[in-house]
Design a protein around this nucleic acid. Structure first.
Lengths: 379, 379
DNA sequence: GCATGTTTGTTAGTAAACCTTACGAACATT
DNA sequence: AATGTTCGTAAGGTTTACTAACAAACATGC
């Protein structure tokens, strides 16, 4: 019953005023127990009571519900080296639910997978989009989702979608130029068609969620993706920053240099004119002997764009995603150097930049994290 | 009983795992009713039920508690132009509680006041600090607070403090150089000494809360204060951004130009070297004929520092605080121009910079907003 | 060996919070 | 005057988490 949030989501369609009913408190406490067991497996009911502040009686009741839902299992008792009755250990069962994840961010290609609650991939599938856009692209997405749902071995907790473009709180794609989508109610349509909970998020936002959920990222984190363009996902206090117009993270069109190259967006000297994969490859091919210098120059520009943000938000971790042969070398080193020089202060820790360890699965894993977080309250 | 959050705060000392008990849900719903009445006075119980999704029965119960606490009053019935029984209108009573606010941000001076729940000042008091620091400064703060509490005409809901320096979640001042405070448990000591709820926040963070609560500011907002130094408070999705080391908003030490003037912080070309009040006055006095150009130059630098942040966070509102003769003119215009040029995009609204309408009371009103928000859940 | 103390998890009963159902009061309309 | 609508309240039920008490299972001390 824990995942039955449909009534609740229905009550809060627009993130408006939030009432709390007894059942909402119950769900919160169920999530809390589950989160505690994710953070530290092999806890007893008494341990959970001590950590959460709830009584052992209440914990027993909550755990019983989780066991009935097959989300938690008893895993033996402690070897008795202490006085008192041995404790029965509890652990999360990650193998009783599946999550279907879709990544729409690649050009001309849909990627999808079936994942366990821990982010292990069970099945994978792709679909060539060709030049399909608009309604045809939607049909392909829905079809791929249905195929993956059919392939799942366990009950599907929900479907997560990471898409390029701007996404509002209802999961509608406001604008995604590559797919020619405008105000497409992706979440609602998929949920109706698939009869499952569906959650849609911008690809960069999904990716930063993945860094936190599956790569031990902290609560304050920026993840920059270097692909055809440059985009970022921001996590502040564990929450994704969406911004006033759902356009947060648009670091690609931050102006670095008034006198820089014109950008299709109309401004001059946007970060993207230095840092996108096509522009980098072009510069490296044009002068192979100075390829490293081109990468370092791009890294410095990235550092210049990031430093004010890092300084203002006081965050210490930046993760870069993109082709490792481009990102993990002079580019990363130069960006790190600039950011360190410009943000160093006695009042705060050092800022670390690193390459993402999630490879090309970041968006898919982010979709998994999104579903897990909303359906189970676990992040 | 609504303000009796002491037990609750005691349960959550470090913002750790949050359990939900029935009483927590009740408090949430009481806050929701109160917030609705703040947003729109003259609502009936039935109106509240429709807006919150709670039943009329529950709303009646909640309202009865608020009336018993003298936080809400019935204010007549609707003129009957509709069928059905006329509705009894409800409104917030802002005159039954006082809030004591303290501003420690001015050099050598403590400012304080007694305020209504709506932010109307009832009493004011100041205290000259002279060169007092450390324990002497604390004693003066506690003394001023006690004096204001004694002057209050209504029960005091709590004491809010806006202080320079970094403040952690427990209200301890980690470091405030001007006052020579290090790890001073300000909130805890004042609460014990005054026997009232006390809430401490960084001055810039308090000020941005005030813009939202008392100057109709939006949920995403940056407020930049130009004084001896330059600091900012950030509001994202209605929450204050504190950062990993409680050092968010340090825009004064964002590096604008590597080759710039050395800054006491050790870096070169920090924003503060152009934009602080002392440095501005100095430049204007040095060449009075080009005073406007000095202001415009500072404004451009501010725009350069703000643009990446605004672009990344996708926020549309920036409020400037500081001496109007410096801020409200060429400086503001130049900053507006740079920010507009660098952040304009089809995907988002225009960014507006404006001078704060709160004058020198911003921090005090922020302390009021802080107490009101934590004690009553109203913002 | 056996009593004692400790820790775990459960049972029984209670208080709080919100819900559904039902009803009287007060109004406009027919 | 009868009917329908809206408002607020009353009564009773369900859910949730609490306190108190207890049995089970262990280590320790005599």
């Amino acid at each position: 019953m824990h995942q039955g949030r449909s009534t609740n989501s229905h009550r809060h369609p627009g993130g408006g005023p939030r009432t709390t009913r007894p059942e909402d408190g119950r769900r919160n406490n169920l999530s809390l127990v589950l989160q505690s067991l994710y953070d530290e497996p092999q806890l007893s009911r008494a341990d959970l009571a001590r950590r959460t502040g709830l009584t052992r009686v209440t914990i027993s009741d909550l755990v019983a519900e989780l066991i009935a839902d097959a989300l938690v299992a008893e895993t033996g008792t402690t070897a008795g080296s202490r006085p008192g009755k041995p404790a029965t250990m509890l652990s999360v069962r990650a193998d009783t639910r599946d999550i279907v994840a879709l990544d729409l961010s690649a050009p001309r290609l849909l990627t999808g997978g079936v994942y366990s609650l821990r982010g292990d991939q069970r099945h994978a599938a792709q679909r060539d989009l060709g030049t399909a856009t608009g309604e045809d692209a939607y049909a392909a997405v829905a079809d791929l989702a249905a195929q993956l749902i059919a392939a799942a071995d366990n009950p599907v907790l929900g479907v997560g979608v990471g898409t390029p473009g701007t996404v509002d709180r209802q999961g509608s794609v406001i604008a995604a130029p590559n797919l020619a989508w405008h105000n497409l109610a992706l979440q609602q349509r998929l949920a109706t068609q698939l009869d499952l909970p569906v959650h849609v998020e911008n690809d960069a936002n999904a990716a930063v969620l993945a860094e936190r959920a599956f790569a031990a990222g902290p609560d304050n984190l920026i993840r920059v993706q270097i692909s055809r363009g440059v985009g970022a996902g921001l996590l502040i206090a564990g929450s994704v920053v969406t911004g006033t117009s759902a356009a947060a993270g648009e670091i690609g069109h931050v102006v670095i240099d008034y006198a820089g190259t014109p950008c299709p967006c109309g401004k001059n000297g946007c970060l993207e004119t230095w840092l996108s994969v096509p522009s980098l490859r072009e510069r490296m091919a044009a002068d192979p002997d100075r390829a490293d210098e081109a990468l370092a120059e791009a890294g410095r520009r990235l550092g210049i764009a990031l430093s004010p943000v890092v300084g203002m938000l006081d965050l210490n971790d930046i993760v870069l995603g993109g082709p490792a042969d481009l990102v993990d070398g002079p580019l990363l080193a130069a960006a790190q150097e600039v950011v360190t020089d410009r943000t160093h202060s006695d009042f705060r820790g050092e800022v670390r930049l690193r390459l993402s360890s999630l490879g090309s699965d970041a968006v898919l894993l982010g979709a998994v994290a999104l579903v897990r977080r909303i359906q189970l309250g676990v992040s």
